[in-house]
Write a protein that binds this DNA or RNA. Structure first.
Lengths: 166, 166
DNA sequence: TATCGTATGTTATAGCATAACAGTCAAGAA
DNA sequence: TTCTTGACTGTTATGCTATAACATACGATA
């Protein structure tokens, strides 16, 4: 009854009901946080909303602007602390290539996702990529390296931008 | 007659004759640059030497300090321009996770290598990781994404540090 | 109510990166 | 030779990213 997994994990590159992104994921985030005894406070919740609304990767200072506009503190640590919390809880991800953050699109799953970054429209899609993790694990065990964190960031062109961009 | 590929690609985690790293790789770099009509000028060559000598990832400002000590310009663009050149030529890599740069250990090969970063000793090993690239290509083609660049950075513990570190 | 831990707010500063312009120099054209 | 051009290097100035350190607020609990 469900779509193929690949399509679900790359919802960002497909048309979809945007309001569901925010609403459902916010509710899921609250549930997850409660279950873990982590506190999804107003600032933290608002930062997650901001990321969900943006629907792309945002720099910490972009988040901060929006926070400040809502009456929260307007100094960098306010944004960074909330973002760090969300990343620790797996509710958001940091994209190293972009020095930016985005909401996680499937926070309930354990993951080290693969990010596909379109250089034309700047949309970032998150995919589960179990094959990639397995391949890394394989290479790592070959050299006796113990993997703790894994960053996989792919840049290129998303389907929609291939006809438009160079 | 040669060692297994895995061992060669992770020379950084094994004892080895350090002077060869610099000498051989500098010569290779010169050859490659000549063949491409790219100019390995004194500053650029010195930056590559600095990276080879450090044998770890260096921040641009660390490179700059050493350059300045040798009488080259001591403003950031001097270091960044040389580093950018080396990265473009495949003679060095940028490690996004660390905001740092390191010499490429096998510049003659085409690659989007996998980096293994030890959180304890900060050594960075570069591995070819063809399986990882294949897995990413597979995931990408499943969603119609055209891959242009690929960043794979793994952090954890290298063999030597597993007994020492937590 | 006193204390403690967690979270937020604020100040100040550190670290990373680049735009814009000026000067140098070698190679080829006039 | 002289001029022009293009690539490289040097310098100034600035902007973006991130965190240390300290102050304040507030709820939970002893």
């Amino acid at each position: 009854m469900s779509k193929p997994a690949a399509a679900e994990t790359t919802i960002a590159f497909s048309p979809h009901d945007h309001s569901h992104c925010s609403g459902d994921l916010l509710a899921t985030a609250q549930t997850l946080a409660d279950a873990r005894g982590a506190r999804l406070t107003p600032v933290r919740r608002r930062v997650l909303e901001i990321l969900l609304e943006a629907h792309r990767a945002l720099g910490a200072y972009e988040v901060l602007e929006r926070l400040a506009a809502d009456g929260y503190g307007n100094q960098p640590p306010v944004a960074y602390r909330a973002l760090d919390f969300l990343v620790e809880q797996g509710l958001a991800h940091r994209i190293d290539r972009l020095n930016a953050f985005m909401a996680c699109t499937h926070p309930a799953d354990a993951h080290n996702p693969v990010f596909f970054i379109c250089r034309h429209c700047h949309t970032v899609a998150e995919a589960a990529g179990p094959l990639v993790r397995a391949a890394v694990a394989d290479t790592a065990s070959g050299i006796g390296f113990v993997v703790e964190r894994l960053t996989v960031e792919v840049s290129g062109l998303c389907p929609a931008c291939q006809t438009v961009a160079a």
